[in-house]
Design a protein around this nucleic acid. Structure first.
Lengths: 259, 259
DNA sequence: TAGTGGTCTAGACCACTTC
DNA sequence: AAGTGGTCTAGACCACTAG
């Protein structure tokens, strides 16, 4: 509950950690950001279940002692970051992170012909090892830390498509390599490790297939593959996952929208 | 000037063409969209020059007979679409389409090491021809229409980086192939042809270099290249440019942000 | 100090969904 | 008809910029 009763500003909140996407050098934290963060905290803690209907704008505004307009702006940011889904006439729902929606948010590979489906996954191997220099830099870890590495093959419509090597700090994801891993890892991160990835950055290159990768993908060594090096980030901008993918693009492609 | 005096809605505006990014099946056009479109029209017509300071929110709202809040929302969309730049304490400026900003909006290739610079361009060839099937589909043209084709080599820091083949409907860009072409084509489209590209869609694949492309890029035939097939769209969602790029990714990479 | 955009409020009405 | 999010207004104050 925000310590506010009136349109005055809460000075104690100004010094709050501000590592959000718009972190400004001098701390000024608008009320709607405080409201947003409070709501994120409650959602991640599980105060409402995925798919559950939230109280109305009016109600939420009343219980947090802010105006409807301010609550509206906070909910707008939550929708933008895919924490909630809003439907006129119906209400505001906690987003399910296992829906087709995520396909377009984090999975940017589609078949050249036919509809875009969500890919299957087959685990090839899991292990832990010391972080290498690249891991340490992208995940902002100490070089001596350990990481879990998950290798899996993803297929769309029974056609092998992508080899993923997923690198996770053991400190954030203890013993994840021993688990039975679902197709949608981001949902697992959130439900079992309290880590919510809301955005990611990717670097793409064209490379030639190694014999190992070629074999798994059903292509010859030396065939061109698309290499995708992704870092997954939390709402606070903290890097928590590195994912290196090799994608065959003879019958698939990567798509992007620039705006 | 919008025909409104009071909070009532303007029925004549409802039937207005709505091909915007959020086109809904049944026409309901919020006031701030009408305001936005009116402002876009004036900007494209050149009522204010690039870089020029616009009147304040209050003034604009008064002259268009809407509240400041509505004007604010319209200006917010203009900022999101990069028509204007807003600075607290300074004002709202018409965006220059030749600034570093556009580098991050439409140019997603950067050197692996060192800072991201804007690339030089060297025209390799220009010509016109009949649209092929792919052109006709992506640009929504009749198959018999003519297109202009511009081939150019782009370099970053004197290192060849990308070969671009730019395909434009002759109907929209008459005689463009005869012109002296600047580095920033999108600015030319806007100033000389009244066509403003606000967003684009790209399809990426890994391919092997042809001897022609390899030679221009200083690589061997058979080296892996990143192929980028882009469609440029106006604010109304109309496709107006196709651009097929071959990018060397041994020392450069393509970057994307997912959110 | 004046002017700008940014935030916040309070309250009204509209469009959409469900009963 | 009731309840939701979406739009719109009117007015206040705050933070930032510049003379």
């Amino acid at each position: 509950m925000l310590k506010r009763g009136r349109p005055q500003r809460d000075p104690s909140a100004r010094s709050a950690a501000d590592a959000g996407e718009d972190a400004s050098p001098v701390g000024f934290r608008p009320l709607y950001r405080q409201v947003r963060d409070a709501l994120i905290k409650r959602i991640v803690e599980g105060a409402w279940q995925p798919g559950e209907l939230l109280p109305s704008e009016h109600e939420l505004a009343a219980t947090m002692n802010v105006s409807q307009g301010t609550m509206r702006k906070a909910l707008g940011e939550l929708e933008r970051d895919n924490f909630v889904i809003r439907r006129q006439g119906k209400g505001t729902f906690v987003a399910r992170h296992d829906e087709a929606r995520i396909l377009f948010q984090f999975f940017r590979v589609a078949p050249d012909e036919g509809d875009s489906e969500f890919p299957d996954s087959r685990i090839v191997s899991t292990a832990t090892r010391l972080a290498n220099d690249e891991d340490a830099v992208t995940l902002k870890m100490r070089p001596t830390s350990r990481v879990a590495v998950i290798e899996r093959l993803r297929s769309i419509g029974n056609r092998p498509c992508i080899i993923e090597r997923i690198i996770l700090p053991c400190s954030l994801f203890p013993r994840i390599e021993k688990r039975r891993l679902p197709n949608n890892l981001y949902q697992l991160y959130r439900s079992d490790f309290g880590v919510t990835i809301v955005r990611a950055k990717e670097k793409l290159k064209a490379v030639l297939a190694t014999s190992h990768d070629g074999q798994l993908l059903g292509m010859k060594a030396g065939a061109p593959l698309l290499s995708i090096d992704r870092v997954g980030l939390t709402a606070e901008g903290r890097p928590v996952e590195r994912r290196v993918s090799m994608c065959r693009t003879d019958i698939f492609h990567y798509f992007a929208e620039l705006k």
